[in-house]
Amino acid sequence: MLLAYSGFMSLPRVRTMPARQVLIFPLLVTAVLVATLPPFVHAAPIRIAYSSISGAMLPLWVAKDKKLFDKHGVDVELTYIRGVAIEALLAGEVHFVRASPPAVVRSTLRGADLAIIANTIKVAVFSLMTKPEIRRIEDLKGRKIGVSNLGDSPDLVLSLLLERWGFQRNKDLTVLAIRGGMPELLISVVKGFVDGGMISAPSNLRGIKMGLRELVDAADYGIPYINSPLSTRRSFIKSNRDTVLRVLRAYYEAVQETRNDKDSAIKVLAKYVRIDDPEILAEVYRIYGQKQLQKTIAVDLESVKGLLKGLAGANPISFVDASLVQDLEREGFPQTRTR
Rank of each mutant, 00 (worst) to 15 (best):
G92M: 10
G180T: 03
R106K: 15
L150H: 02
F236H: 12
D152I: 07
Q326C: 11
L58Y: 06
T16I: 12
M1Q: 07
T79D: 03
K271N: 03
M9R: 13
V244C: 01
T336C: 14
V14F: 05
E257V: 15
L109F: 02
Y272L: 08
G222N: 07
R47L: 02
L162P: 04
K171N: 10
K262G: 07
V190K: 15
F25Q: 10
V175G: 00
Q168C: 05
E302R: 15
A44N: 15
P183Y: 10
A322V: 12
R249K: 14
S51A: 11
I24N: 01
D261I: 04
V175S: 01
G197L: 13
T243V: 08
V216D: 00
S235M: 07
A124C: 08
W165G: 10
S228K: 01
K262I: 04
S6G: 02
E163T: 15
K141R: 15
S318I: 01
P132C: 09
I46L: 14
E253L: 15
I208Q: 06
I46N: 02
M182R: 08
S318L: 09
A254M: 08
G146A: 06
L28P: 04
Y80T: 06
S100L: 06
V97M: 14
T120E: 03
R169Y: 00
V29Q: 08
V76W: 05
R179Y: 11
R241N: 05
A88N: 09
I24C: 13
G306E: 10
K305Q: 13
Y251R: 04
S153W: 04
S323K: 11
I137D: 02
E214N: 14
F319E: 09
G310K: 04
D152N: 13
V94G: 02
D75W: 04
D155M: 00
Y5N: 09
N170T: 04
Y225E: 04
S200D: 07
A115S: 10
L293Y: 09
E214K: 09
P38A: 12
V14C: 00
D139I: 09
A63R: 03
R82Y: 06
I137K: 15
S303T: 07
L114V: 12
L156D: 02
R135D: 06
Q294A: 10
V216W: 05
E214P: 01
D195G: 13
M182F: 10
P45L: 15
T258V: 09
I117G: 01
A250T: 08
A19K: 08
I226W: 06
V105K: 14
R110K: 13
R337K: 08
I223R: 01
D261G: 09
F333G: 00
R106H: 14
G92H: 07
V175Q: 03
